[in-house]
């Protein structure tokens, strides 16, 4: 059992938890993830870790409520417990002095980017961070990002903050101006795919952090297989980071849809239960 010791609501759908997990906190490295199971009937699902506090022995997760499990996770309060957490899982990000790194994140990927850029900056890189969101209200952790980047650039789809456009719009600009050594991207698949497609034209090495469907997360079931350079790789043990130019994006996009109907059903059913509980509480 893993205790939630702090909860923050970052937006209507994005929440942050600090969770007691001493051994994970001690051993996790940037880029690695954990697998959670909320209760006896829960599914196992992966989340990237956004930070650790070694003194307190805690890890921080920042997640967006999307399906049933993340929505249910969002209902937990300080002092509640998560039944199972295993980690750290996956290969850590390679941290060294590359020169100039452009790090991109979209949506909740922003939180997951933080440990990576923080380590890259410490390793002596010039880190240009580009984050994107639909609008200003969805932007996360601006202060922290600024602190751990050499330069922070922001794009919003509607232009309510920073540059109007997508992260790729900003990336195109940066590539023209700077001698970039490597690009790192984490976020929704369409965003990582767009970034990879753009950098391919410049022959600019691009690492992406993939989020396929997982079950055990420990190298056993093969659910998270992705084709990289036409070879099967397992995101849970070989990844989650791969060369974005070699990933079969179409296949990954398709595989992420495998349980769409089930996910919809589970979420609807869960929301019905939540509504019922709310009504009961009011009575």
């Amino acid at each position: 059992m893993f205790k939630i010791i702090k909860k923050e609501v970052l937006s209507s759908v994005i929440k942050s938890f600090e969770i007691e997990a001493k051994d994970i906190a001690k051993n996790i490295k940037p880029g690695q993830f954990i697998v959670l199971r909320l209760n006896e009937k829960g599914e196992r699902f992966p989340l990237t870790v956004a930070g650790t506090n070694l003194e307190k022995g805690t890890i921080k997760i920042i997640f967006q409520e999307a399906g049933k499990s993340t929505t249910q996770l969002g209902t937990l309060k300080e002092g509640d417990y998560i039944r199972d957490i295993v980690g750290p899982l996956g290969q850590p990000t390679e941290i060294k002095n590359f020169g100039t790194v452009v790090a991109l994140a979209g949506g909740v990927g922003t939180a997951e980017l933080l440990p990576v850029i923080s380590a890259l900056l410490k390793a002596g890189n010039k880190v240009i961070t580009i984050v994107g969101a639909r609008n200003k209200s969805l932007l996360l952790m601006q202060e922290e990002l600024k602190e751990h980047s050499s330069e922070l650039l922001v794009a919003t789809d509607d232009g309510s903050y920073g540059i109007k456009g997508f992260v790729t719009t900003v990336l195109a600009d940066v590539i023209k101006k700077e001698k970039v050594s490597i690009v790192y991207a984490i976020g929704p698949v369409p965003m990582m795919k767009a970034v990879s497609n753009m950098t391919k034209d410049y022959n600019l090495k691009t690492l992406v952090s993939l989020n396929p469907i997982m079950v055990d997360g420990t190298g056993m079931c093969g659910a998270c297989r992705v084709s990289v350079n036409k070879e099967i790789k397992f995101a849970c043990v070989d990844g989650p980071e791969f060369d974005g130019h070699l990933v079969d994006w179409e296949e990954l996009t398709n595989r992420l849809r495998a349980f769409k109907e089930n996910e919809k059903l589970a979420l609807e059913k869960y929301k019905d239960i939540l509504n019922m509980e709310c009504k009961c509480h009011k009575e």
């Binding site: 055990d216 079931c221 093969g222 659910a223 084709s227 296949e251 595989r255 849809r257 495998a258």
Partner: peptide
């Protein structure tokens, strides 16, 4: 790697 093709491990797990 099409959808609804599982390894036996995935199916049984």
């Amino acid at each position: 790697n099409l959808n609804n093709i599982y390894s036996a491990n995935e199916f049984l797990v």
